[in-house]
Design a protein around this nucleic acid. Structure first.
Length: 481
RNA sequence: GGUCAGUUGGUGAAACGGUUAACACAUCGCCCUCUCAAGGCGACACUCACGGGUUCGAAUCCCGUACUGAUCACCA
């Protein structure tokens, strides 16, 4: 069987957005499923839109995601160069365009852009461009060429008949040739058009599976025409449905929608992001959702890519991110979370591991850590009404009575840990004839200043240490009196 | 406007002519419990955009309508 080769061909025009990343992921998965090659090609023929540093963003994103490419500008390969502007300098596109002219499959066009534009406006919707340059005799053409007249090269298209092409996702699509215009292959500035450069590069790089967004579906038949003109094999096409922001709009960087790096900054893990977006537009055959990249590449199947745009649901990503955090190997989790804890509380002030444990099941994204633990540094200021809790059957007056009892239970404790604190407090509650929560809740509030805190009273007390615990208890007592 | 494509709960989706229309997120209950989470259990589409057909039988096949999207550049 032929070796599968797929490519990711972004334009370096800024941030990597989610839809783009998903296309890269699918291309990667399709290649890796069959031990194929995944190639990175930079399409930078659009002079105006280049953004400085954008190429580095592409490299970094792929690297962070583990989408390692086998060939590309940075890692090399046998099909280089992998940057279109460099290929352009080698004259590749121009060569093939002229080749097509020689073969009688394309022609020189000396029409002025403005003139065509004018015709288009006058004709309105029914405009169909018939290129008068096709009627030029070879002598006339040579004369214009010798006179250094500007020209483009356009593909010859017979207006009769139909063209169909096969897509792995959308099936066979057939269009009438008269809806296809004689597309420009080589622009008057000598640059190839996107479509043309794409075809040439994909062919020259032996790409077997072209993975791209479905916005290209309509222009896909045109691609076939170019392949046919050359007599080249047509690759498999895999058009992916869009990733939507809502029912009507695609996720786009223009709208400032979430880019991959935005999500990472918000505390999402690259693995979780990748896992989640894999499921937008594709579904596995088994009843499962959590997949590592490697597992994905085994399970992935082009046949199960959907045809409908999928709305990006941040809530589900958040859930999945939480799953990744919870399932993470312990040391890895600790090292991941430590910098966040230390940046909020400083180094060495608290037992970082205890805090990490306390928040483990409570965070879905890393950015939540800061607020969740800030009270360790200093208890939040609070209104005494916060002591009112229906479930604990407490109120400020009761808390005023109970806090000293909790203090009694703790002040002589020599062995200070979660278990001993709990035992002592539970014994005190029993002695008082109240439920644990009735004693614990006011303590939690006293120590944290919060009605909701990670770990509850005993875990907080353990982390704060005996001295700080008793101090905060004193503060709370005086506040209530 | 022409052309092409799509349409299953709030969201991602399964189903490949015969199931009570999976599963997951979200939401809402209950359980567990020292709060909140996590975890466990349960509820949540009399129905698959709509209208016709085909069939013993349709979310699944066919036709039409509606709606949504994409595309019609010397932009990628």
């Amino acid at each position: 069987m032929e070796k599968i080769r797929t490519r990711f061909a972004p334009s370096p025009t800024g941030y990597m957005h989610i839809g783009n990343l998903r296309t890269a992921l699918y291309a990667y998965l399709i290649a890796k499923k069959d031990d194929g090659d995944f190639i990175l090609r930079i399409e930078d023929t659009d002079q105006g839109r280049l953004v400085e540093g954008a190429v580095d963003i592409i490299y970094n994103t792929l690297k962070q995601c583990g989408l390692n490419h086998d060939e590309g500008p940075d890692v090399g390969g046998n099909y280089g160069p992998y940057v279109q502007s460099e290929r352009m300098k080698q004259g590749i596109y121009s060569h093939y365009a002229h080749e097509l002219v020689k073969m009688g499959k394309a022609h020189y066009c000396f029409c002025k852009e403005e003139d065509i534009e004018k015709q288009r406006e006058e004709a309105g919707d029914s405009f169909y461009f018939v290129d008068p340059c096709k009627l030029l005799t070879p002598e006339e053409i040579q004369k214009k060429l010798d006179a250094n007249e500007e020209y483009t090269i356009r593909l010859n298209v017979e207006p009769e008949g139909t063209t169909s092409f096969d897509d792995e996702v959308y099936g066979t699509i057939t269009v009438e040739n008269k809806t296809l215009d004689e597309m420009v292959l080589l622009k008057s500035d000598g640059y190839p058009t996107y479509n043309f450069a794409n075809v040439i590069d994909d062919h020259l790089m032996d790409i077997t599976d072209v993975v791209r967004g479905n916005e290209y579906l309509s222009s896909a038949p045109k691609y076939n025409l170019i392949y046919e003109a050359f007599g080249w094999d047509i690759p498999r096409y895999i058009h992916c449905p869009p990733v939507m922001k809502d029912e009507h709009q695609k996720l786009s960087k223009r709208n400032g929608d979430a880019s991959f790096q935005d999500l990472v900054e918000k505390g999402y893990l690259p693995e979780a992001i990748l896992n989640y977006i894999a499921l937008l537009g594709w579904s596995p055959s088994e009843d499962r959702e959590i997949y590592s990249l490697e597992e994905l590449s085994k399970a992935f199947d082009v046949k199960r890519i959907g045809t409908t745009g999928a709305i990006f649901d941040i809530d589900k990503l958040t859930w999945m991110n939480g799953m990744y955090i919870r399932n993470m190997e312990q040391e890895k989790y600790f090292e991941l979370v430590r910098p966040y804890i230390e940046s909020e509380l400083g180094e060495g002030n608290f037992d970082c591991r205890l805090i990490a444990n306390a928040i483990h099941d409570r965070i879905n994204k890393l950015s939540e850590i800061k607020d969740m633990i800030s009270f360790f540094r200093k208890a939040d200021s609070y209104d005494s009404e916060i002591f009112t809790n229906k479930k604990a059957k407490t109120n400020p007056e009761l808390a005023k009575d109970l806090l000293p009892k909790a203090e009694d239970a703790l002040k002589d404790l020599t062995d200070w840990n979660n278990e001993t604190i709990f035992t002592s407090l539970a014994a005190k509650a029993q002695e008082l004839g109240v439920k644990n929560i009735t004693l614990m809740y006011p303590l939690q509030v006293a120590l944290s200043g919060r009605s909701v805190a990670p770990g509850g009273a005993t875990a907080i007390a353990e982390i704060l240490g005996k001295e700080e615990t008793l101090k905060r208890l004193e503060d709370a007592k005086s506040r209530l009196s």
